[in-house]
Amino acid sequence: MRARYRESTLFLYALGASLLAFVANSVKSLILPSLINGILGFASGSKKIPQKLLAALLVLNAWGAFINGLYFHNVGDEIVSIQAVTIRSGAVESFLILTLRFFLIVGSTLLMLGLVNVRDLIRSLERDLRVPSGIAFSIAYAFRLFPLLSKDLSEIRIARKERGFTSVVLSPKHLRSILLPMLNISYERAVWGGISAELRGLRLRKVSGRKPLGLGDVIILSALALQWVISLYS
């Protein structure tokens, strides 16, 4: 028998897991929820989100976390020294915390994406959680954009290479040359997306009735609560 659940419960799960990522502030408290959500999320969500985009996000995050650790938390015992750069325990710990947080947030989001249909998610958010249709639509539309972001990234990489930038992102200026076109293109797309939604009656949307809580909802929310308890008491 299949356990029935509301799509919005999975949204709450992803939201709760993401909040946990910000509340937990040690490697010990993050490791278990991050591994569970990271493994399950990447396994189920990678069918819906392009793997290249996930890989790019992973690399960008790891690089950012490493630079952040090196600049702001490079204190404590010396771990390794490479030429003029000495990496200390504080930098490694900071790198691990940021990476685990990334795994927890992205993993739980991917888990949700892997299990729900976007249109059902909008309906469930409106019907079960009374989220205004504009906000529910914005959340759902973000998921439609993932494959487009992947395509944008690939085209921007080509343009950067043509214009004399290296493929490897080495400095904030290099990072800016990726993010700026990406944000500008996404902004324009979002404006036209809004126009398209308005033209198709988003403003008139009314969803009635509520789906009763099922066994699936109880299991999902219990799993979230359990992760919070383990994390806070470890």
Binding site: R189, W192, S196
Partner: peptide
Amino acid sequence: SRLVGLVLQDPEKQVLMPTPLDEVLFTLEN
């Protein structure tokens, strides 16, 4: 929106939902 249908210049910007079925149902549900 009830009386008018508009086809935008760029389908990439008009299509909002992840599957064709969802895309057509989106207008009708709204």
